[in-house]
Amino acid sequence: MRAYFIDIFSGVGSVLVGMRVTFSHLFTRSVTEQYPREKIEMFDRSRNRLHVDIEDCIGCYLCDKACPVDCIHIDTIKARPGEDLGLTEKYEKKKTFVFPKFDIDMAECCYCGLCVFPCPTECIYWISDYEFAEYDRSNLNYHFGNVTPEDARVRYEEAEKLKIQKDKEIAAKKAAAGTEIPSQPKDDSTESAE
C-alpha cells in the first residue's frame, strides 16, 4: 500500500519536474536561424560545390581517377603548336591541353573531396555556393570546358590530320631507313604497356 502511494507521488513529482524544464525553455532564446533571411557563414573547409579554374588545369586526370563515383568527365585535345592559351593564375604561360569537356555532375557527386587533394595545380576546389537547386537534374552537370563544340570539332579534325601526317612522316622515315628495322614488335610492346 505504501509503495502504491509512493508510486503515485513520485509519478506526479517527476511529471512536474519535466514540466518545469519545458516551461523554463519557453522563455529561453530559440536556436533557429531564419534561413533565407539570415545566413550562416560557411566554414572555410565547407564542401558545397566543386569549381574548376580551367585556365590552370593541365589535364592530368588525377581528379578523375580519384573520384569514387566517376562524376568527373574530362576530354582533352592537344593545343595547336605555338597556340597562346593565356596565363595561369600564377602568371605562367599555359600549355599542352584544351578541354572540349570538363564536366562535373554534382548530382552524382558524393562530396567526399577526394578529387581536390591530388590536383597538382590546385585548380579544382570547393566554393561556398550551396544554393544550387535545380528543377532539371541535367542542370546540375556543370561544364568547365574552355572550347566550344564547334571549335572542338575543328580541333579534332586538325589533330586527326596531324596524326595522319605524322604517320606518313614516320612511314616515310621507315621507308628511308630501310626495311630491316624490326618496327612491328616495337609497336606491340608499346601497346601492351598501355
Binding site: 566554414f43 573547409r45 565547407s46 564542401r47 558524393c110 562530396y111 567526399c112 573531396g113 587533394f117 570547393w126
Partner: peptide
C-alpha cells in the same frame, strides 16, 4: 566537424596514415 573536415555528416576525414586536415 564541419569546421574540421568540411562536411556535417559524411566526413571522409580520417585517412589511411593520417587525417585529411590538421585541426583548424
Amino acid at each position: 566537424f564541419e569546421m574540421t573536415s568540411g562536411a556535417r555528416l559524411l566526413y571522409n576525414y580520417i585517412w589511411i596514415g593520417g587525417v585529411a586536415f590538421d585541426l583548424p
